[in-house]
Design a protein around this nucleic acid. Structure first.
Lengths: 110, 110
DNA sequence: CTGTATCCTGATAGATACTG
DNA sequence: CAGTATCTATCAGGATACAG
């Protein structure tokens, strides 16, 4: 049960790394855990794991196990996850258009 | 200094009530503190005050003092605040389109 | 009507180490 | 390579009371 449509959406993307996870998984539909952690840089193993798990529970991300040794697991967006990309883009675009680029350590999208 | 454009935008709207404040101030450009608190319902006086203050510091909201007794203060969006409305709408639209409406206590936008 | 100070709690994130 | 457990730090949010 959600208070309203704002909170319902925000609960899914409020996590510190979730927007970026959506962006990464959208850019590369065959992302593995290590690659994701490398791209998100200062995120810790445990936190990334938690955020992914929540996104799986929320139906935004799917986990694919290739049953190989060494372990080979990929993550990709579900339809529902993909549907959030316009929101991700809106957030990205606003940042690029309205934040002084000299105040940005990195520019990631577009 | 921001990590990147995602974080830069999210820092401004991550607060629990900020999206709704943006929405309310956009709907009514002459909003007073009490009215805002009433519309956001379970928000406490102190928290609303904090969130508004942050939004003023971030250049999203402007405070207008009418120098009347009893106090008469109105808040409205700055240009910068208005520019965030497309982001607010994207979040609102996604929620309406993707959350089972029976799980929403209220529907606020559109 | 509007704003601030104190105190408290839970959620969130991070450091680190251990497992298959 | 992927995932979990423990412990700790920090912060955001909220209850309450007081002030101009």
């Amino acid at each position: 049960m959600y208070e309203n449509e704002f909170d319902a959406t925000m609960q899914l993307i409020r996590g510190k790394w979730k927007i970026r996870i959506l962006y990464e998984l959208n850019s590369d539909p065959h992302t593995r855990f290590n690659a994701l952690q490398r791209n998100l840089d200062p995120v810790t193993h445990k936190i990334l794991s938690e955020q992914i798990q929540q996104m799986i529970n929320d139906g935004l991300v799917k986990r694919i196990d290739f049953h190989e040794q060494p372990l080979h697991i990929e993550y990709h967006l579900t339809k529902r996850g993909q549907s959030l990309i316009p929101v991700v883009d809106a957030i990205c675009d606003w940042g690029l258009a309205n934040i002084d680029t000299s105040k940005l350590k990195q520019t990631l999208c577009n």
